[in-house]
Structure formats: C-alpha cells, structure tokens
Amino acid sequence: MKKEDILAKIDEKYENLGENPETYLSGLLQAKPINYWDYIQVDTLLSLQKTRTDFEDEEIFVMYHQVTELVLKLMIHELKQITLKDLDETKLIDKIQRITRYTEMLMTSFDVMRNGMDYDDYNTFRATLAPASGFQSAQF
C-alpha cells in the first residue's frame, strides 16, 4: 500500500471518529515503538511467582499452575468464539481442533509436576497451602 493511501485511510478513520488525524500523526512522532517485551508484559508475567516457602520446587508448582490457568483461558476464548459467533464449518473445525490441542497439552503437561519436582519437598510445601487447591479454579 502506498504512503498516500495509508495517510488517506488514517484521515478517514479519525475523521469518522470525529477526531483530528493530525493530532494522532504528530503523537506518533513522540511515541516509542512497542516491543515484544512490553506488549506481552513479560516483566509483569515473570514477577507473578510468589512462593510461601524456601523449597526451590515450589516455584515450579506455581508456574505450572499459572500456565495451566492461561491454557484454560485459551480454551474458554475458543469456546466463546464458537458459541457467540456464526462460524462457517471450516472455522468451527479449526476452533475445535485448537481446543483439542490445548486439552492434549494440559493432559501431558502434568509430567512437569510428577517428574519435575522432588516428591518429599512437594508434600512438605504443599501442606502450607491448605486448604487451597487447583480444584478451586473457576476456569477448571
């Protein structure tokens, strides 16, 4: 697309919103470009692992469950797409296949817990979490 076409589309977009396109264009001159780290908010994501004990494997436990919650959110997102939108057969099949892949991922991911943590340490720090349980997850 040519620069003139892009500028014309920007003008049209902001004029349709009742806004001045020049205001937004001049704002771009001051704005910092976005990068992956900031867009995904990696700093925030990586700061969410709060443990209650000094057992090293507790952090694995926390991260595993956080990843599980994110995958469950992916599944819910796909289910909303299926139920709230009028999808053609191809898109519907694609969404169902995605949900199937997410489900398979969750089913096989438990090895992280079973084989990735010291059993005795797990049983010790897990007692500090009572009565908390993954079964309390609204998404689960």
Rank of each mutant, 00 (worst) to 15 (best):
D121F: 02
F125G: 06
R114G: 11
K80S: 00
Y122I: 01
A127V: 00
D88S: 07
F110D: 15
G116Q: 06
G116C: 01
Q97G: 07
D120A: 15
D111C: 10
E104C: 10
M113Y: 08
F125C: 02
L92A: 03
R114E: 15
L74P: 03
L79G: 10
K80E: 04
I99F: 14
M105A: 14
K91W: 04
L87I: 03
K85M: 11
F125A: 03
D120T: 08
Y122W: 02
E78H: 06
K80L: 02
M107K: 13
T108A: 14
E78T: 02
M107V: 05
I99N: 13
R114A: 15
I96G: 14
M113Q: 10
E78S: 07
L79E: 12
H77F: 13
V112T: 13
R126N: 00
D121K: 03
E78C: 05
H77I: 02
Y119D: 01
L106C: 01
F110L: 13
I93V: 07
Q97S: 11
L87Y: 08
D86H: 07
Y102H: 14
T90V: 12
L106Y: 03
Y119E: 01
D118T: 04
Y119P: 04
D88R: 10
T103D: 05
M75Y: 11
D121I: 05
S109H: 12
D120R: 15
R126G: 00
G116M: 02
K95P: 08
T90A: 14
M107E: 15
R114C: 13
D88I: 01
R126S: 00
I76P: 00
D86S: 06
T90H: 13
I99S: 12
Y102F: 12
K80G: 00
I76L: 05
R101M: 03
L74S: 09
A127Q: 12
M75L: 04
K95S: 14
R98G: 12
V112R: 13
M105I: 11
I82Q: 09
K80P: 03
E89S: 06
I82E: 09
G116L: 04
Q81D: 08
L92F: 11
L74W: 09
Y102G: 03
